[in-house]
Design a protein around this nucleic acid. Sequence first.
DNA 1: CCGACTTTGTGCACACGTTCACAAGCGGTA
DNA 2: TACCGCTTGTGAACGTGTGCACAAAGTCGG
Lengths: 263, 263
Amino acid sequence: MAVKRGAGDEVVTTTPATAAPDLDGPAVRERARAIPEAAVARLAVYLRVLSGMVDGGVTTISSEELSAAAGVNSAKLRKDLSYIGSYGTRGVGYDVEVLVSHIERILGLTRKHSVAVVGIGNLGHALANYGGFPSRGFPVVALFDVDDDLTGVPVGGIPVSHIDEIEQVCASREVSIGVIATPPPAAQAVCDRLVSAGVQCILNFAPVVLQVPDHVEVRKVDLAVEMQILSFHVARRADEASAEQAANGMVNGVGVEGVVIRP
Amino acid sequence: MAVKRGAGDEVVTTTPATAAPDLDGPAVRERARAIPEAAVARLAVYLRVLSGMVDGGVTTISSEELSAAAGVNSAKLRKDLSYIGSYGTRGVGYDVEVLVSHIERILGLTRKHSVAVVGIGNLGHALANYGGFPSRGFPVVALFDVDDDLTGVPVGGIPVSHIDEIEQVCASREVSIGVIATPPPAAQAVCDRLVSAGVQCILNFAPVVLQVPDHVEVRKVDLAVEMQILSFHVARRADEASAEQAANGMVNGVGVEGVVIRP
DNA sequence: CCGACTTTGTGCACACGTTCACAAGCGGTA
DNA sequence: TACCGCTTGTGAACGTGTGCACAAAGTCGG
């Protein structure tokens, strides 16, 4: 998060006079740099929806249809797609296959990204067996655990390696993404070993804030945090409801006590 | 996402002259409404870090220390905390326990939120056995699946119910959060049944965009999307690296072909 | 070939979230 | 009590992301 501002200096989001001459050259890099993080997440969703459409035999789709299927509004969808270039036909819509291939290119899915899962507990088992990874170009090629009883046992077709082998195995199998599914206390140590093994991307399921060098990208999935965000919305909604009720029922400005908020 | 703008009309984030008289009244509700979504997610992280500090015997902490432990900068942390009120002491810092209780209150954790998991496959198993939920106030009280071979079998201490019982079981056990861990094709139907059972919050692990009424809050965890975001950053970084290399090695403006980008 | 209709791509304005920088306030000290 | 140093809390500037509304650009029917 620090080196990011190395080369670019003041990123110009509007690429004014870069009309059309270079369809796929250095400009792609420049543009990729300017795609908002939020848009990238949505592009992945569009890709999934579009893949389903290809299977369904759909060849062309309008921004209105696609945005409805992806759960966003059409303006946002078009803006997101404009970040990766102009591949639609006005008056018609987008060619589904063309769009798929361009999104895949931008997301870097033309390369295979081999995945290693560390921590073969309940969650690790589930991840190793999860069909969603390989089918989307993320083959799981290595599993690690500290438990000697697990090493050698195949899970989802892949034998579990001992965590001490992490460096050599990751290197030989060209792992580019590490998934941490260990108990919280082990997470930082595992993370350090993954980094020293040359892994540049980490998906962290452990409820711990990982410290990593600038060149490593971390994304976290914290189930408890997700729950708590939902909890917040429940509470907020309950407050609003009771407030509305209070506004109708009692006119004095002091009231509304003991129903929702417990100090 | 639509009804939100119902009552408030122009939310005033700055609560200027609401000095101190009402420490815990209707103002809390007003304020809760104004907390940015992103801040809520971070508050959950702060809470986790602070809980660890309580266990470690820490009684007071400065914004600088806490922000470092939570992986954010101190200004953001202080602003986040200011959304929930002024509970720090200038020149000293924050009382850890006070902060914990206030964050818990804002996040609605003074109520227990019972959880139901639907779809007892690999992931469902992992979630049912996951210790992180109960310990943070989210007891798993019900499990559902369509498979008759599973119904009755206890997983993580809770017997699996058939999905047809979802309405009555959810009602009797007062489920407030539903977790969808089914295969994609089943997700929307399950979601509809959860909603009709009165569940207001849904955590969705299926790679599907769920359609729900306005009053239901959905959060999604899509592992493939997370992977693809990581993939995007790998690609971007590779592009930057090769571009830098190209800038050093070749001076003509056309070059850099065939190394990274495959059109 | 032309005009009507449809849908994209984007400039612009607004809202949201982040960061900065500093006054206000508190504890410790003489 | 008066001062000094430290840390909070927050106004204000900034940057990023979202939504609107429309010109540009294409198809289709006649």
